[in-house]
Design a protein around this nucleic acid. Structure first.
Lengths: 296, 296
DNA sequence: AAACTCCATCAAATTATCTGATCAAGTTAA
DNA sequence: TTAACTTGATCAGATAATTTGATGGAGTTT
């Protein structure tokens, strides 16, 4: 009841060549084999594809439409076959990159767009995790690459440090801590800290928990965290590039904390040494290093 | 060298069912037939799709990707088959509508969008022509429907008059004719008239020609004509709805012409009586009548 | 009118695919 | 740990699908 590709291929050739006989020639078949395939296709569809009442067979309206859709089908089939060829040329079928959500997403997306524009056969999967969640996911999901902020020492991994990333301790201007001068840790602990939690553990997403005596509020990502900060729910660390506009506009202010209100992280591009890197992985690594800059 | 659908169907079933044997059961085949198809597919692709080194066969990375692309292929094949079913339920494979470019295109597009949203299997082709070109195209291309402004009397056609359409004679305010009061035809003829020409004849697109002593400038469509009018290249008739904004803003002004600066056309929805109307044609007719309104 | 080209059709030959049986290897359950 | 199963491969023979090659009627070209 369903079509097969050979029938469609023959249909397409007949239309292109203009007659059954010439299509047969083009396909290295006999004319009767072409006739057979056309009949088979018509039987599968349950409708006439050609009108043979005249001298030369002509497409019926349905036939015209089947031809168009069938061509798409043939092209797609061709693509599936060509995929494998590209895989054997070093392009990997899948490439998974795990990144820390603290990293500037605009840069990441720019890199991914560049990759997409190159029309690479590789499916690139991006996963966003936080802190420890990054390397955990990297291990467990068998991802090829990760961009993590947590240092690790595993001799089976290749680690390439990228340009530093700065974080700032911020609060809303109307929050009591905004006025504090040279606040100590004890002062901070009297208020709610907002934290983006490792998403694999964040079952209690958005719920308040007591943790080591401090009051911590867990959020799913930095977008939610920024909103919570601006609503003066608490204080917290934010990547500098994600709050630059707010600091400028004064909708968020930098905390005056004795322990230092700025902190540097070093993003690291990590891949496995025991697994060969495909062409897409290689390319992605280069583009990431270029976009994020090498550690100076 | 290229894949066939049966192999992909089997691949898909094996993955869904979890083993060759259970796939065989689901497909009403024997286990060895499934094995045969998988081998065939792998040979066609030139790569292993399953890794059989362990107890149960597992997809290779390439296999996973082939599965995904193959599924798309199978869905598309299913769609091609289902198309024919819908055609036999009264939906025509193609529907061509020829319209006069003077008609308000926003309304037309609204109707076409409504049709598209209904997810109809019919391919709707819209052709824009002008005046006589509309019925010419209707005849020659064998279109199913037309919206024309030129009255015709053919007993083999069904003609349904729609709500009138008004045109205005306009010029740019800086054009000499803008100041003319009660201009006669002879006065008009001293200036260049801008006309949208029947596109099938408009080889001399955009060129000036002498025609019956009058100087006429031919343009390809009303968008170009409006621009030319605003640049004060000449005077001409425009559909009221396409220049309402400009008349309001004063970037175009209505000519004071003795013969009358306004003219009414009656758009007519025409179809052939000798050909049955498909469901899409029926639906489109109704929506056009609804959108453009019946003649009062 | 003669020579072609169009496509259909049919029996026979050729392939492609499936069956059914058997096997080695790995898993499960008692 | 053995006995009973399951997993997928393989092979010869059976069956089904496709192709060939020959023929014919109808329409075209020269």
């Amino acid at each position: 009841m369903t079509v097969d590709l050979e029938g469609l291929r023959v249909l397409s050739t007949v239309v292109r060549e203009g007659s059954f006989a010439r299509a047969a020639l083009a396909l290295n078949k006999t004319q009767s084999a072409v006739s057979y395939q056309v009949h088979k296709l018509e039987q599968q569809l349950g409708t006439a594809v050609f009108d043979r009442s005249a001298y030369r067979a002509e497409l019926t309206p349905v036939g015209e439409r089947i031809l168009v859709e069938g061509q798409r089908l043939l092209d797609q089939a061709q693509y599936v076959s060509s995929l494998v060829e590209q895989f054997s040329e070093g392009w990997e079928p899948r490439l998974e990159l795990v990144v820390d959500g603290m990293l500037p997403s605009a840069r990441l997306l720019a890199v991914l767009k560049e990759m997409a524009d190159l029309n690479i056969p590789t499916h690139i999967q991006l996963r966003v995790e936080f802190l420890g969640g990054v390397s955990q996911r990297f291990e467990q999901a068998g991802a090829e690459l990760m961009l993590t902020l947590v240092p690790l020492s595993d001799t089976r991994l290749s680690v390439q440090a990228l340009a530093d990333l700065e974080t700032v301790l911020v609060v809303a201007p109307e929050h009591p801590l905004a006025l504090a001068k040279g606040a100590e840790l004890a002062v901070l602990q009297q208020h709610v800290e907002l934290t983006v939690h490792d998403s694999s553990y964040s079952k209690a997403h958005g719920g308040t928990q007591t943790f080591g005596g401090e009051r911590v509020f867990y959020l799913s990502d930095f977008r939610a965290k920024k909103e919570a900060l601006m609503m003066a729910l608490g204080y917290g660390w934010m990547p500098l590039d994600q709050v630059e506009d707010e600091l400028q506009a004064g909708t968020l202010v930098e905390l005056d904390y004795l322990g230092g209100s700025r902190h540097r992280y070093t993003p690291m591009l990590v891949r496995r040494l025991d697994q060969p890197v495909g062409r897409a992985g290689q390319l992605l690594s280069e583009k990431l290093q270029q976009q994020f800059g090498l550690n100076s």
